[in-house]
Nucleic acid binder design. Sequence first.
DNA 1: TTGTATGCGTTATCAG
DNA 2: CTGATAACGCATACAA
Lengths: 334, 334
Amino acid sequence: MSRPTIEDVARIAGVSIATVSRCLHMPDVVAVKTRERVLSAVRQTGYNLNAAAQSLRQRRSNTVLVVVPDIGNTFFSEILGGIEAEASAAGLTMLIGDTGRIKAREDAYVRYLLNGRADGALLLADPQAAWFDIPTRNAVGLPPIVTISEVGPDSGPVTVSINNEAAAAAAVGHLIAQGHRRIAHVAGPVSNVLTEQRLRGYRRALREAGLTLDPGLEFPGDFGLASGRAAFERFQALDPHPSALFFANDEMAMGFLASAYAAGVRVPRDVSVVGFDDIHFAQSCIPALTTIRQPRAEMGATAMRLLLEIIGGAAPASVQLPYELVIRDSTTRA
Amino acid sequence: MSRPTIEDVARIAGVSIATVSRCLHMPDVVAVKTRERVLSAVRQTGYNLNAAAQSLRQRRSNTVLVVVPDIGNTFFSEILGGIEAEASAAGLTMLIGDTGRIKAREDAYVRYLLNGRADGALLLADPQAAWFDIPTRNAVGLPPIVTISEVGPDSGPVTVSINNEAAAAAAVGHLIAQGHRRIAHVAGPVSNVLTEQRLRGYRRALREAGLTLDPGLEFPGDFGLASGRAAFERFQALDPHPSALFFANDEMAMGFLASAYAAGVRVPRDVSVVGFDDIHFAQSCIPALTTIRQPRAEMGATAMRLLLEIIGGAAPASVQLPYELVIRDSTTRA
DNA sequence: TTGTATGCGTTATCAG
DNA sequence: CTGATAACGCATACAA
């Protein structure tokens, strides 16, 4: 025995397959008695629509593919929530693909989309060229793509993001306003577009305050806890210490906090710390972390709406949403 | 213009569609010159396989559906990593569905599976009845399911987990060994199977040590940061205070640590804390958290392997993997 | 080595 | 209101 098909149902109900299909999709168009017979046959057989056949026929999958670079990064979950809300409202199923920032895996999802298994894709990472490759996308009618959050010059025509440079400048501006003059920056991974944007904001804020840029105060990082810990070592090695650090994300700031605490360096008494992203745990850091909040749920929802518009034939413009400086306990006057 | 089909390629290459198909799937069976012509036509047209047509024909989707209850919970990411490794090795694409523990969303993924869009499913949460419903699954040949981590009596025939009760007992046993006699437990959400299992382990450890069970030391919780903070309030209200707390997960423990720190209660000087899960941030808590580590990547990999076995026609048994008590700085002698 | 022809399970068109 | 039937795009058994 294999899966029951629409034909099995039709036979048992004593109707044509067309009627069965109608019962499932336009129930009010079929006679009540017929409908009852059909639905009963459906239950009896345990019938389920074959999605492959349906998409083949309808030329769409009612699925949206969401590609994340690292599912372990809690930053993404709220974005996914925003996407889900809009997607399910539109009758689409949201499926998440995790690339782990590995090229082969990203390629697999590119293929997934190209094969028509999704009607469109939302990318939560700076996309590789493959997503927009001329050779693969020269055929028209390919599924549309919207890029969220990690938006750079190669992110395609439609994007949703915040102004990372301005946000970083605001974060550093806050430190400057608190009286800090010697402010370090812990950057993200070199290849990431956000790294560059946030670094630019850091530099701009210093420049605008008339402070000199010191390359020795720009620490490398990779968005991971460990690089926050490493930043603490560099911090300690500097003489005089910076009085504040601006981290390109919260996780690194948390690593720094842990190392600082262990070493008896108190935040914000001895040094002020600002993160970026306002991840879930930022509020429960010790001390609670001052950071930049991105409207993540709204970013996801907006991107999903844009995607639906494109699918519907429109050509919407990219969107930039407002960020917010969230001041907590990790910063104070120098 | 719409997507090119195999027929377009065939026409341009001057061969039949069968040959095109063979070029794509069994390249060595077709003449070199022919193959070159075909592949060139593929490039020229930007042709991509239509997955719907392919799965309709082959009666499988080469996709595995992974259902998580809450993508924001970092606990799951490592499991996903383990799954991905095995899945891609087997030529399957892993797709993640996030239910947010919302019934309607879970149902959507049940349907997804039933519709044949995935060849099998891995559930990272105690599954609702719908996954194993007799009416929907009485038809044979439906895609198999393996449940991971949150395993209870209704988790289906094949599961991968640790012995949560024993692990909880080990965690509490550690506290007892350190000399603690007044140990509180902060439980998970009431409906969760893990809550019950870990609570049982807590009670068993106390009983076996000859300590009396005090219902007043069993605090409610929901796995969230906030309930960890609430636990701190209860802790403070108790006289005498417990000298240690065992939390049903790390996130609640982190909430407690934050509140305790803010209130000037020092861990482990004033109170010892044990979590459960060893999430990413557990190592960077202040202080670093003693907890139970589950072999998450291996759990994922094992589950994926079991699923493949079932798909291959085997009937493997459930697996229980070893856990590990990770002792860090949040516990010390009473 | 290549081509022909059939069917996978639906939906939608068109008659009745 | 219902039924017959033609695609949808591909893989494969069978012929050549």
